[in-house]
Design a protein around this nucleic acid. Structure first.
Length: 486
RNA sequence: GGCUCCAUCGUCUAAUGGUUAGGACACGGGCUUUUCAAGCCUGUAACCGGGGUUCGACUCCCCGUGGAGUCACCA
């Protein structure tokens, strides 16, 4: 079987973190078997579609570096065009298809028109709730004769098409959850075609997944209970039923389905907060799925290789933001100087000079997210005012600190540009001097470091020398000596 | 409430009948060290409860309990 997975987002704004996870699993599954990953836009709710949402969605896919094989693609000029042999991939462009198959269902007696107003439906549901019954359509319009119905439709009355759920039960084997059974008494005669002529998700999904040859339907757990509706229709049409895999929900810390109220739901927000795409993919891609072993860091290729639907957990997963921070730092620390500069640039207000690049490289183990770089950079760009008392090491006094700084001033004057080209070289130069002169590390290194950074806590003096360069370093040392003498 | 699903440290998870129940984040201690970070070592911490099945259950079955999802002309 050729694996064809699909992601079917509705274009209603930003990309939900759960959508990303589903997309990732779709992608892993398709890629590992040489199959196809398809994106289909489900814009059948005219009121909810947001302009620009599709573009945004496609941009996010680019940002996380996963690519689909069919569906809408973003062109360089910002326009969208489709690729693939099973289009159109936007549901609002497939309306005729849905109409055709809705009509077919009605003709076969598998669906029927319904004229009930939403007011009546509300009343009906209230009554059912009061009697503690399952809320479902009471089939009032099912008793209408075909002639009556036709007459009312022709007179212009508003109507919908409902699925006529047959007697019996639906059983299916979820690739993640195993065998699931639903009695049809629990399945509502859901609406297939709305009064505006648009299909609902239920109909559109079945028609599209069939004609797009979808083999695996991966979606969130919230869809489990509507699966019988889909399967009933696949069977009515005589079409093959795809494999369903319902992914566990991503939960907020209160263990509820992650919603906008309870946490950061949008992938865009994570980027804005300064997380790296690789870290996000690693983190989200291993939420509910883990390649065996004691590792935590995986490349996307490793995830593709080891992904296995059978190993996906069925329980929901709470986002552990501290772990995301840790993971992000792991990726940050693995980046080279130029890469850090590239990634940090959008988050840094300073111009990307060599000093800034070096400072970013040194500070990357002290931050978790790109947004923290701006603050971390400040002490390098400009010496912050500090109390000269902090220049004095705990085991020494002001006079000693001053003396040591003057020695350092003299030493650093003599250091060549070549020595300033690497942290290691600077470290050896200073340490050799300390050994040669019979000095104590702390007496020299503490005041040196504080003088250079202007801070009690900072990177090593060697790193700071390297970042600042000779001239700025000397300036700061002179400043410290002067401060100690007044 | 009906239906469906789920259940290992606080959190993410490993374990597919036999382990001192492993790893990671977070937290505590230590080492390293001029400070911080990083790194290394280490500690605290879990099989929801009760019945079975079995020589043996975290693993299989049943019943509870708890949690979640879903019950729209939204997806």
């Amino acid at each position: 079987m050729v694996v064809r997975t699909r992601l079917a987002p509705s274009p209603t704004g930003m990309m939900h973190i759960g959508t990303l996870r589903t997309a990732l699993f779709d992608y892993f599954l398709a890629k590992q078997s040489g199959g196809k990953f398809i994106i289909r836009i489900e814009d059948t709710d005219q009121g909810r579609s947001v302009p620009g949402a599709v573009e945004n969605l496609l941009e996010m896919f680019e940002a996380v570096n996963i690519s689909h094989d069919e569906g809408p693609f973003l062109n360089d000029d910002g326009t969208i065009s489709e690729r693939g042999d099973f289009g159109p991939y936007v549901q609002s462009n497939r309306l005729d298809l849905y109409k055709k198959y809705s009509d077919e269902l009605v003709a076969k007696g598998f669906a029927y028109p319904c004229f009930c107003s939403s007011e009546r439906l509300d009343e009906m549901r209230k009554g059912q709730v009061a009697l503690k019954q399952t809320t479902k359509y009471d089939r009032r319009c099912l008793s209408l004769t075909a002639a009556d119905a036709r007459k009312r439709i022709e007179s212009g009355e508003s109507y919908v098409i409902r699925l006529k759920v047959p007697e019996g039960k639906t059983e299916f084997d979820d690739a993640i959850r195993g065998h699931v059974v639903f009695d049809h008494h629990e399945v509502d005669d859901c609406i297939l075609m709305k009064s505006d002529g648009f299909p609902t998700y239920f109909l559109a999904m079945v028609v599209d997944d069939h004609f797009m040859n979808i083999s695996h339907v991966l979606r969130g757990e919230e869809w489990v209970s509507s699966t019988p509706k889909s399967i009933i229709m696949f069977n009515m049409f005589g079409w093959d039923v795809p494999i369903f895999a319902h992914l566990p929900l991503i939960l907020s810390p209160d263990k509820k389905k992650l919603s906008k109220r309870t946490g950061d739901t949008a992938v865009e927000i994570y980027f804005k907060h300064g997380y790296l795409a690789e870290a996000l993919v690693n983190f989200i891609g291993t939420l509910g799925f883990n390649p065996s072993g004691d590792r935590e860091i995986f490349t996307i290729d490793e995830l593709i290789e080891s992904f296995d639907l059978n190993k996906v957990n069925s329980g929901g997963a709470v986002l552990n933001m501290e772990k995301l921070d840790w993971m992000n730092k792991q990726y940050l620390m693995a980046l080279g100087m130029d890469d850090i500069a590239l990634r940090a640039a959008p988050f840094v207000s300073a111009e990307m000079t060599d000093v800034v690049k070096r400072a970013l490289f040194i500070e990357r183990s002290r931050v978790s997210r790109l947004t923290e770089f701006d603050d971390a950079l400040r002490p390098y760009l400009e010496l912050q005012a500090y109390d000269p008392a902090i220049l004095v090491w705990k085991k020494a006094d002001a006079a000693d600190a001053c003396a040591q700084l003057e020695r350092m001033l003299a030493l650093i004057e003599t250091l060549s540009d070549a020595v300033f080209s690497a942290v290691d070289l600077l470290e050896s130069a200073v340490k050799e001097y300390i050994t040669r002169e019979g000095l104590q590390n702390g007496n020299v290194l503490w005041p040196l470091r504080v003088a250079l950074s202007g801070q009690e806590k900072s990177a090593t003096p060697f790193e700071t020398l390297w970042v600042l360069g000779k001239e700025t370093s000397l300036e700061r040392l002179r400043h410290a000596v002067a401060a100690l003498k007044t």
